[in-house]
Simulated assay, not measured.
Amino acid sequence: MTQDAKIHHHVPDAAPPPPSSRWSHAVEAAGWLYVTGQLPTDPDRPEAALPPGIAEQAELCFANLARILAHAGYGFGDTVFVRIYLKEFARDFRAFNAVYARYFPDDGPLPSRTTVGVAALGRDALAEVDLVCFRQSGG
């Protein structure tokens, strides 16, 4: 595989894309993995209502990310950048961070991060999270 080759990951046990969208769960290129933003949907019941609170929604976002990372052979420790979208920034920032800290604890290297407040997210979600990961070739 050349440095420019890209691997598109469709993860069978991750939440499916909506019928109106066309995307891969992740794209890998030259050691980089770009993980599509994950909403707090239950991949085993994609049409189910979203949980009502930010902590529950954050947990589902990270569970979806974990499935995609595992499928691609990466882990949260390979994350170099996290982008977080919060619908209710002022209200939910602290509770979201409590969940985030379990995946990126202070005693380890922390990825770069951007957290933004947004007017709306798909399915009227409270949070969405995407990742950029890197791993040297050879594991």
Rank of each mutant, 00 (worst) to 15 (best):
H10R: 12
V11G: 06
V11E: 03
V11L: 09
P12G: 01
P12R: 09
D13K: 14
D13S: 15
A14T: 12
A15K: 07
P17G: 11
P18H: 13
S20N: 13
S20K: 14
S21P: 03
W23C: 12
S24M: 06
H25R: 04
H25Q: 10
H25T: 06
A26R: 00
A29L: 12
A29E: 15
G31M: 01
G31I: 00
W32I: 09
L33K: 07
Y34A: 13
Y34T: 11
V35N: 10
Q38W: 03
L39Y: 04
P40K: 01
T41R: 09
T41V: 15
P43K: 00
R45A: 14
P46S: 10
E47G: 08
A49E: 09
A49S: 10
A49V: 08
P51D: 06
P52N: 05
P52T: 07
G53Y: 07
G53I: 05
I54T: 00
A55N: 01
A55H: 02
A55V: 07
Q57T: 07
Q57C: 04
A58L: 07
E59Q: 11
L60V: 06
F62W: 15
A63D: 12
L65C: 09
L65N: 05
A66R: 14
A66I: 08
L69Y: 00
L69W: 00
A70T: 11
A70H: 13
H71K: 10
G73M: 04
G73Y: 02
F76W: 04
F76D: 05
D78A: 12
T79N: 03
T79A: 06
V80P: 00
V80R: 10
V80H: 02
R83C: 13
R83L: 15
I84D: 03
I84F: 00
Y85H: 14
L86V: 05
L86Q: 04
L86Y: 04
L86K: 03
E88P: 00
E88M: 08
F89A: 03
R91W: 06
D92K: 01
D92C: 08
D92P: 00
R94S: 11
A95E: 09
F96G: 03
F96Q: 04
N97A: 11
V99M: 03
V99Y: 01
R102F: 06
Y103C: 01
F104E: 13
P105Q: 12
P105W: 14
D107G: 11
G108F: 10
G108R: 15
P109K: 08
L110S: 15
L110P: 05
